[in-house]
Nucleic acid binder design. Structure first.
Length: 119
RNA sequence: UGGGUUGACUGGGCAGUCGCUGUUUGUUGAUUUUUAUCAUCGAUUUUUCCUGUAAAGGUAAAGCUGGUCAUAGAGAGACGCAAAUGGAGGAAAGUCCGGACUUUAUAGAGCAGAGUGCCAGGUAACGCCUGGGAGGCGAAAGCCUACGGAAAGUGCCGCAGAAAAUAAACCGCCUGCCGGAACGAUUUAUCGUCUGGUCGGUAAGGGUGAAAAGGUGUCGGUAAGAGCGCACCGCGCUAAUGGUAACAUUAGUGGCAGGGUAAACCCCACUCAAAGCAAGGCCAAAUAGGGUUCCUGUAAACUUCCUCUGGAAGUUUCAAGGCGUGGCUCGCGUUGGAACCGGGUAGGCCGCAUGAGCAUCAGGGUGAUCUGAUGCCAAGAUGAAUGACUGUCCUGGACAGAAUCCGGCUUAUAGGUUGACCCACCUU
């Protein structure tokens, strides 16, 4: 049961354009320098994650992959602490100038603030 | 040993924990297909009996067919679970070339357009590669080169310069002619030198320019000069020899065509149909719309018939009606009903991982590469996987992420391994 809470399977992701536009329509936001987080309550009993990593902000594919992996890993490990929300995380323009260390700290900051908002 | 040139390989390792994704096997078995048996229900056919003038209705049996339930057998099998096993690159990048594949087009030929451009070979093909030639750079190994045509035509070439091309003559140089008068000689009016003008000759020298109609010469020649002649070099043409060829060498011959620019138009030779995996193929819900068939109803119109103030049949048009608005009436809104067919959207599946494949060995070839034998199967996602954390080791990890697939080119790249060659120095 414990290990199950650290999985990241298909049902934990936003899969279709409908899911995404549902969140974009009506969501509350959490910002910092690197990311924007949009969230909306869903009808399941688990959270779901969707990522929007714009090519405009991060030009090279390896950078985009790196950011995606960071966010996905954090979501995977923290999912039991999150409520049943559909979450969409967008990158912001300034992220291209940040170091890997900074990106990690901004990521942690984002999730902390999101948890506070939920509670 | 140091410096240099040029190929080939590699692109952090190990252990543990957690995760993503493909494949295979096993397992559970939602669901589903099919067969058999039993039960039950319906349609239909035949027959029995009953009612009825008839049409028809009811009843029972048999045959056939379909649905449902149960049991048994066989098969498929989602989401899962478990185990095993695979999971980015040398450039995956740029999208610059060439192919495969798909759809469309296509008798053949031509024009236009685009591309290529020393020769030969390799290849599925290429603008790639290999070998060779020519030119250039370097002391050498070696490196670089869009390397066909300017003697088909057109365009462009500032400034300078006399002139930028059937040549011309600014300063010069030189013969002749007409003068001058300084000097020298003497034959006393002639010669030489100098000097002014002029008819000509000249292209050696100066000057301009990127370029001035080959270059060099203690050569000959001349009034001075000049390919005017000669020798050598260069160039053109011809021949021979070597080479598949590009080309090279040698000999003869011509005193010698000719400014540059063709990544300017152009000419010549050769090549090319177009669009791309969002190609393209298949399955296909809901809603809306299309077509075909059947059915219900009643009204109107028309036609035909009969026992003619009426009735029956047919055709066409239509919706009385139905449904919704809690029930009823009015009102309002909406609409014939059913079955089937085809197109097609969302969505899904295929295309899609066995290939101009890789490894080893043998053989042919200078080589690119080809042939044969044996062995191997090596990412396949789709809101898009190939990762995170911890420990440890070292030389402290660069550039950078598959998206239909191959062959190249170009660009980026920390460090490491290794072959060959050149030069210098030292030792023997």
């Amino acid at each position: 049961m414990i290990h199950k809470s650290c999985q990241f399977q298909r049902e934990l992701r936003l899969l279709t354009a409908k899911d995404f536009s549902r969140v974009f329509d009506k969501a509350f936001k959490v910002h910092n320098k690197a990311f924007t987080l949009l969230a909306r309550k869903n009808d399941y009993n688990h959270p779901r994650l969707g990522l929007v990593i714009a090519k405009k902000n991060l030009r090279f594919a390896f950078q985009r992959n790196y950011v995606k992996r960071l966010l996905r890993e954090e979501f995977r490990l923290k999912q039991s602490e999150l409520n049943a929300y559909d979450i969409v995380i967008l990158t912001r323009r300034d992220i291209a100038q940040l170091s890997k260390k900074d990106i990690i700290s901004f990521r942690n900051n984002l999730f902390e603030r999101f948890k506070k908002r939920c509670n």
